[in-house]
Design a protein around this nucleic acid. Structure first.
Lengths: 157, 157
DNA sequence: AACTATCTCTACTAAATCGGTAGAGATTGT
DNA sequence: ACAATCTCTACCGATTTAGTAGAGATAGTT
């Protein structure tokens, strides 16, 4: 299971992908639009900013915007940032390899070979899936266009 | 990441797959052979017994043995028993479906479609991988045969 | 300069989960 | 009677999860 935080991050990014490139949304509007606790979302977006995925501006015309095209943000990148390794065993992780404490012979470890296949299959999907892919075919776009009292879109200067 | 408990369970089962069908091993010998804390392993094996995967006998000639052929015990079965659903989202689980609390429209959920692919790919691997597969090509067999002070194999009556 | 809207940052917390331990009990064979 | 083994319940400390609180910095407006 992925964490609630990762799910929120992905959904926030998908919502941001729904406004024209460079345009921003308010934390408040993202939180309401996606049913995410506002203060929790603040911290999540801050992390995404530190990781170079979004940018922000403070003050009266402030907000959050994607820093890269949504097509260049993969699910894998977001999940690794927030939930850590995708691999089901530490000895199979790319980003945080660790030897299993109780494992004497890694190359012959019986379960490692099975989980290596799981890791590879998961990575295959998650590396290829981008925020833009997820946004396409989602109802977010139409909602944005139709909804009169919808999120306030603005340009970050 | 899978839990230490699931990893221990899989390795204990693989070790049990190394003795002739119906033959048993002692908790003590499995714990030593696989570097698993003994008391922890007791509880794990008890759970595997409740689930109908192993059988046991108490007393002086007691021990644990597989209840089914190792080829009929899948990684998926063991993981689901111990770590719960394989699916990365509750709304994608076979064994414990739950609606995401914050999700208004499941069929159009953007991230659900991506994680459905992950779930399917993982299941594909984990359902097909059996304890017997893992045991084959592992060094466990030769070790069992060579090791003079190895685990004590016994028949459960 | 004052005011207001927004993001920023640190710290805190309650609940759940994880990894394991303790210890008494039941059963079986000798 | 005794020793070896599994059985069962309860507990425990550390970590993680899912938030919340609240003070602060910054930008635009008047």
């Amino acid at each position: 299971m992925i964490s609630a935080e990762a799910k929120y991050a992905l959904r926030a990014l998908i919502m941001l992908a729904g406004v024209p490139a460079g345009q921003a949304l308010l934390i408040q509007d993202i939180a309401e639009g996606q049913n995410i606790p506002r203060k929790f979302l603040e911290r999540i977006l801050l992390n995404l900013k530190k990781a170079g995925i979004v940018q922000s501006r403070r003050g009266q015309l402030g907000g959050y915007a994607l820093l890269k095209p949504a097509s260049q943000i993969s699910f894998a990148q977001v999940l690794r940032l927030i939930d850590g390794p995708i691999a089901p065993l530490p000895c199979l992780s790319i980003i945080a390899y660790r030897k299993c404490a109780d494992c004497t012979d890694e190359t012959h470890c019986e379960i490692r070979q099975v989980f290596a296949q799981v890791a590879e299959a998961s990575r295959e999907v998650l590396e290829k899936a981008s925020i833009a892919d997820a946004f396409a075919g989602s109802p977010a776009l139409e909602r944005l266009e139709r909804d009169v009292s919808g999120p306030r879109v603005r340009t970050l200067r």
